[in-house]
Design a protein around this nucleic acid. Structure first.
Lengths: 108, 108
DNA sequence: AATCTTTATCGTAATATTGCAATATTAAAA
DNA sequence: TTTTAATATTGCAATATTACGATAAAGATT
């Protein structure tokens, strides 16, 4: 096994899981934080910032992009990556709902 | 390789990543939603709700518990699992900060 | 005590992820 | 056009995750 049974779950469950999964690695969290820190979105220096090789960073960027958490604009031979807040809002709203529901329940 | 280089990242980055990772599987999202739906936290029926075998569900519950997303109270021979909202709040606040910072930046 | 119920753990197979060296690609610069 | 710079892709090894059957553990029931 090892293959996730995605077809048994709802679209929303799969969506939430896939966004969360993309953030489920410290390198990808670090990339997000770096993009947030350098106000302009000039990238490529991410490789210098992180303790990871260029192909590894490129791979992580790809996953963040696939998850819709960042977007990349081609600018000459460089690529300008920056955060796309939409998916973060999806997660934030989802968690907000959970939190308010749980606090109302007053369970355990 | 395949081993995440956790020691190269900050504690916060590792914490965010590990909570997100725990939610990075649709089965675990489904478990959270089920715990939310059945107001009381009587559990064990999760196995009947999900298309997964009992050991698999037990494993997912363990990961959610390790991540601090749920807590389990022993009640006789059954166990009462329920959501612990604290970690959800950590993620929610973290995402809120990202969202407000990004919208101020007005990048790309 | 014997049995049932509920949950956890072990062992293992299938698959996915992580990381990087080597290489390819693409566009700017010389 | 050759070189340089930036990023992506390929291929592969190491490790992690997912799933489940078999079995164990622990309390309830008979």
């Amino acid at each position: 096994m090892g293959a996730t049974k995605t077809d048994h779950f709802t679209d929303q469950q799969n969506q939430i899981a896939s966004i969360a999964k993309a953030l489920g690695h410290p390198a990808r969290v670090a990339i997000i934080e770096h993009l947030l820190k350098v106000k302009a979105c000039i990238c490529g220096d991410i490789v210098n910032e992180l303790p990871l090789a260029q192909p590894t960073v490129s791979q992580h960027l790809k996953e963040l992009k696939n998850a819709g958490l960042i977007k990349g604009n081609i600018e000459g031979n460089a690529i300008c990556y920056c955060i796309d807040e939409k998916r973060f809002e999806v997660l934030k709203n989802y968690f907000s709902k959970i939190i308010t529901t749980v606090t109302k329940q007053n369970c355990c």
